[in-house]
Structure formats: structure tokens, C-alpha cells
Computed example of a mutant assay.
Amino acid sequence: MASPLSADRMVAALSLEGVHVAEHAGWRTHNRNSKGAWGPVNGILIHHTAGSNSLGIVWSGRSDLPGPLAHTHLAKNGTATMVGNGRANHAGPAAVNAFTAVLNESETHPRPSNASGTVDGNARLYGIEIENLGNGRDPYPAVQYQAAVRWAAAICRAHGWSANSVVGHKETSVEGKVDPSFLMDTFRADVAERLRHSAAWSPGAGTGGGTTTPNPPKKEKDMQLTDQVAVGDWQPRRWPDDKGLKDKRISVETALGSAYGHSRVAHEGVDALRKEVAEVKVQLAEVLAVLKQGRA
């Protein structure tokens, strides 16, 4: 539990962490303090905008929900625009069981339960809206994702919190929110890694490049000859077509798959043919027996 950061302290903490900060005109007095409490604060809530070019709406809000809708809007290029200083309409009611995990900086974050009751999340949580469609296909450019990590780490560092004070809206909402569209366990691990270093730390070469997909797949190890696979995975429907191959070459994978798959098909075909031949022999023997009886 802590007093909220002042506007100056917030900007200073973010800048020290390496966040590119922009200040929307009037943001220092833009809030919903007249409608409810702001503070004490206990954690950080991560959102995605579910749209594009969303800075305007995060600032002004919607007809049914006045702005600001967060404290910061994070663009695709990594620019963090400050849009609110004080209470913001971003968290809504937070499940007590989920909020308690934040309060206790628990390493596990339970599924939010409406039955546990709710607390006023807008009073207790900082919020950031990250520009993303949230459809599971729109990527988070590395510069944007790393800026989000830095933003969260900066606030944690300023308050002396651990990365377990950072949660996604989907982890607190009793209204079925699904944001953000990336894995929060991974995000918390990235925030924790930053907090193990000074605010000026930058990851070494090869870290933070490319884009971050909403749910990045686990990297698979190279296949070994002793690995077990399903037979169907190695059973092509037809022989590989080598038309157009000037040197008549195919990949080792194709060769292995085709060789095994088609040899198995051939073996099964031969077994079936043997059974048919055996049945024909029996039928032929019966016919011959009848013919012999007719001659007798």
C-alpha cells in the first residue's frame, strides 16, 4: 500500500527506466477524482486497446465511460503518452481474491471470482493501455513490448514492489475482460528481470528483437532419431512429386517420411492381399470338391 506517485515523480521514474515519455496537454489535472478515491495504490494493471489509433479515446473516453481510460497510452512505436494523473476509468470492479494476490505480491494469481466480492480497482491500480487489436494476431513490436515492461518496472521500482504487483485486466475482472492478449506470466518474468538490474539497464544484443506475438509458441528441440511420433505424421498420401526438380533431389525429411510411410502402406497392402488369396484358395477348394462329387 502506497501513496500515488505525483506527476513529476511518475515522469522521472519512467524516464530513468528508459521509457520514451510524451505528455498530452492537460494530463496532470485530467482524472476522475471527483467521482471517487485515488489511492492508496497497490499494483499495476495491463490492458490492450482492442483498436488502432486509440490515443484519442483513451484520453476522452466513450459516451458511456468518460476518460481518462488509463494513466498511459502506449503506441506501437514505444511512445508512452501520459493521459491521466489520478483516478482513471480503466480497472472497474476487481475481484477480491485477485486483488488480494496483488496486495500480497503472490507468485500465483487465481482466476477472478465474483463470489469473493469486489474492490474499486480504479482507486487502487495504475493502468496502461497498449495499442493492439487484441485479436490474437496483431503483434506487439519489440520496441512497444519492451516499453511496456520498462513502464511497469519503473512504477514497481519507485514503490519498492515486485513484479507480482503487475496483473492483466483478465486476471482481475469480474466482467469477463480478456486483455492483454499476451501471457502475463511471461510479462511478469520480464519485469522481474528488469528489476534485478538498475533502471538504466538495457538487455544485451539479441534480446528484445523482432516482434512479440500475443501467445508465442514454445521453441521445440531438434528432432532426434529416438523420438516417438505418430505413424500418421510419417505417412504421406502420395509419393513426393519431383516434377520440376532439375537435380531430382528431395529433402531428407521427405525421403524418410515417404520411405517409412509407403513401406508401411505396402506392407499392410501385402498383408491384406495375402488374406484375400487365402480366402480365394478356400473357396476354390470348395468348388473343386463339389466338382469331384459331381463326377463320381
Rank of each mutant, 00 (worst) to 15 (best):
A2L: 05
A2T: 11
S3G: 01
P4Y: 10
A7K: 10
R9T: 09
M10R: 15
A13I: 01
L16E: 14
G18K: 00
V19Y: 00
E23D: 12
T29E: 14
N31G: 04
R32Q: 14
S34Q: 13
K35L: 15
K35N: 11
G36M: 12
A37P: 14
L45Y: 04
I46Y: 07
T49M: 08
T49Y: 13
A50S: 15
S54N: 04
G56K: 08
I57W: 08
G61F: 07
P66E: 09
G78D: 04
A80G: 09
V83Q: 00
G84A: 02
R87T: 02
N89Y: 09
H90I: 01
F99C: 03
E107T: 11
H109V: 13
N114W: 08
G117D: 14
T118E: 06
R124I: 06
Y126M: 00
G127K: 02
L133P: 03
N135Q: 13
N135Y: 13
G136V: 10
V143Q: 12
A147L: 06
A148W: 03
A153E: 06
H159N: 12
N164E: 13
S165V: 12
H169Q: 12
V174P: 00
E175A: 11
P180L: 07
F182C: 13
F182K: 04
T186K: 15
A189N: 10
A189V: 09
D190E: 11
D190K: 14
A200H: 03
A200V: 03
P203H: 08
G208M: 12
G208P: 05
T212N: 08
P214C: 08
N215S: 08
N215K: 12
P217M: 08
K218A: 12
K219Y: 13
K221H: 15
M223R: 13
L225V: 10
T226E: 14
Q228L: 14
Q228W: 15
P236Y: 01
R238K: 09
K243C: 04
T254C: 01
A259H: 02
R264Q: 05
V270E: 00
D271E: 13
L273H: 05
K275Y: 03
V277I: 12
V277N: 04
V280M: 13
V280H: 05
A285P: 01
A285S: 08
V290G: 12
A296T: 06
